[in-house]
Amino acid sequence: MNNAPDSSPLAANANGMLFVASDVEPADEADFNRWYDREHVEERVRIPGFLSGARYFSLEGGRKYLGLYRTESLAVFGSPGYRAAFEKQTPWSLANLDRMRQPIRRVCAVRAVTGFGSGSHAVVLPLAVTGDVEALVARAAAVGRQLAEQPGFVQSYLLAPDTALSTPLPREATEGRVLQPMLVIETSSADAARTARTAAAAALDADPAAGWLLALGWKLSAAELN
C-alpha cells in the first residue's frame, strides 16, 4: 500500500468532501433510509465532479447517520450542476431534510491523505479550531504515517471546513456554530478503528471520547454510474 501523504502546501489539487450527519426520529427512519438509498446518494454522485458517496452508521458517538461525498475539488460546490441540485430539491428530499435532527453540514478540503481504499469502519475525530491550517495538515500527515503501521489501517485524511461553502442545513443550529477540522480514519475492523482513535487523539491533543466510530453501510462511485 502506498502510504505517502498529501503534502501540497496550498492544497491546490485537494479533493472536496461534503460531510452531512444527522439524527432522525425513529418513526421517520424507514422513509429516511429509503430516500437516502434509493434517491439521494445516486442523485448527488451523478453531479459532475462528484467522485463517490458513502453512508455510515454510528456505533459510538456522534450522529446516527453520516454521508460522505468526495468531489474532484471544492470548486464543484460552486458549479452549476451542484447549485441546481442544491436549490431544486425533490419533494422527497425536502421532506427528509426537514426530518433531520441536530444536523451537521460541512464542505471541506481533503488534506493529509495517507493510504487509499475504503474501510469497513471509520473514525471521525473532531479537532480544535486553529489559525494555522498548514501546521495542522503537517501534524495530521505525521499521524497518518504512524497509524499506517497499525494492523487494519486503510486510509486517513484531514477534513478542513470551508467557511463560505459550509452553509447550514434547514434545521441546523447557527448560534455558536463552530467549524472544527476533523481527522477521518478508515480501517478494516471496529477494533482497529478504536485503536486508531486512541492513538490519533493522543497525538493531536484531542479527546478520544469525542471521536465517532461508524460502520460503512454502502458506497457508490461515479465510475459505477457511467
Rank of each mutant, 00 (worst) to 15 (best):
M1L: 10
N3V: 15
P5N: 06
A11R: 02
A12I: 11
N13A: 15
A14I: 07
G16T: 01
M17G: 03
E25M: 14
A27C: 06
D31Y: 02
R34E: 11
Y36W: 02
D37I: 00
E39H: 12
H40I: 04
E42L: 13
E43Q: 14
E43I: 02
R44W: 09
R46H: 00
P48Q: 00
F50V: 10
A54W: 03
A54C: 11
A54V: 01
R55E: 04
R55D: 09
Y56W: 15
Y56Q: 07
Y56E: 08
Y56D: 08
F57L: 14
F57H: 12
L68W: 10
L68D: 09
T71C: 12
S73Q: 08
A75I: 00
A75F: 06
F77M: 13
S79C: 05
G81K: 01
Y82W: 15
R83T: 10
F86Q: 13
F86V: 14
E87K: 04
T90F: 11
N96C: 05
D98C: 09
Q102G: 08
Q102C: 06
Q102Y: 09
P103K: 04
R105D: 09
R105C: 07
R106Q: 13
G117V: 11
G117W: 10
G119K: 11
P126A: 10
L127T: 03
T130Y: 08
G131E: 14
D132F: 05
E134I: 00
E134M: 09
A135H: 10
V137R: 15
V137A: 13
R139K: 15
A140L: 05
A141Q: 05
A141K: 06
A142L: 06
A142S: 12
V143I: 12
E149V: 04
F153C: 09
Q155F: 08
Y157G: 00
L158Q: 06
L159Y: 04
A160D: 10
A160C: 14
P161S: 13
P161Y: 06
T163W: 07
A164T: 06
L165Y: 04
L169Y: 01
P170C: 05
R171Q: 10
G176D: 11
V178K: 00
L179G: 00
Q180W: 04
P181T: 02
V184H: 12
V184W: 09
I185R: 07
A190C: 04
A192L: 07
A196K: 08
A196V: 03
T198N: 11
P208A: 07
A209S: 13
G211R: 08
A215E: 13
A215R: 13
L216F: 11
G217P: 06
G217N: 15
G217A: 12
W218Q: 12
K219R: 14
L220I: 12
A222M: 00
E224I: 00
L225A: 13
L225E: 14
N226M: 13
